[in-house]
């Protein structure tokens, strides 16, 4: 069963025809060319497909494309309308990534956290990011970047050249 959906994707109204069984993640990647949400597990466990739906992070592999009719989907592409965000810059300065595959999802989850709770403590940061798996970094550089951004870091934020 094909249906047309219309929704806001990174502040732009998009209309597209989808099948009832189409998953938001696949539609974004394969039909709309939005590649930053990644396929990691396809079962909602790894967080690499994270996107924001009406401002809240969701696992886009667990959302039917039909469900987002009339809603607003934001991906990393949308976050960067005016270039890299301060959070991304801090991630860069702290080497808060290695292979970079989990990075888009991690950035979105961290962004949601500081939008909601501008001064999280370490435990709150850990909890907020615990749905995004990273196999490379051991998470510490990610947590430290968030702490630095909100002014709770150890002052190790470095100028890199």
């Amino acid at each position: 069963m094909k249906k047309k959906i219309t929704f806001l994707l990174n502040s732009e109204t998009r209309s597209i025809e989808v099948e009832s069984g189409d998953i938001l993640l696949d539609v974004l990647r394969d039909k709309l060319g939005i590649k930053t949400p990644k396929i990691g597990c396809d079962m909602g466990d790894c967080g690499s497909c994270t996107v924001m739906l009406d401002g809240k992070t969701v696992k886009s592999c667990l959302v039917l494309a039909l469900e987002v009719e009339g809603q607003e989907v934001t991906t990393l592409e949308g976050l960067m309308k005016d270039g890299m965000t301060p959070l991304q810059q801090t991630f860069h300065d702290f080497n808060s990534f290695q292979c970079g595959f989990c990075t888009p999802g991690m950035v979105l989850s961290a962004t949601e956290l500081i939008n909601k709770n501008p001064k999280p403590n370490r435990k709150e940061i850990q909890e907020a990011l615990s749905g995004n798996l990273c196999r490379c970094t051991g998470y510490i550089p990610i947590i430290e970047a968030v702490e630095d951004l909100i002014g709770k870091g150890k002052g190790e934020g470095k100028e890199k050249g």
Binding site: L76, F97, G161
Partner: peptide, 23 residues
């Protein structure tokens, strides 16, 4: 020296393409 990663911006900005991202 702890030089900044040359692949940093590509990965943080999401510009980095992985095999499944290719069309």
């Amino acid at each position: 020296k702890s030089a900044a990663r040359v692949d940093g911006i590509a990965k943080i900005s999401g510009a980095a393409r992985f095999v499944d991202d290719l069309d």
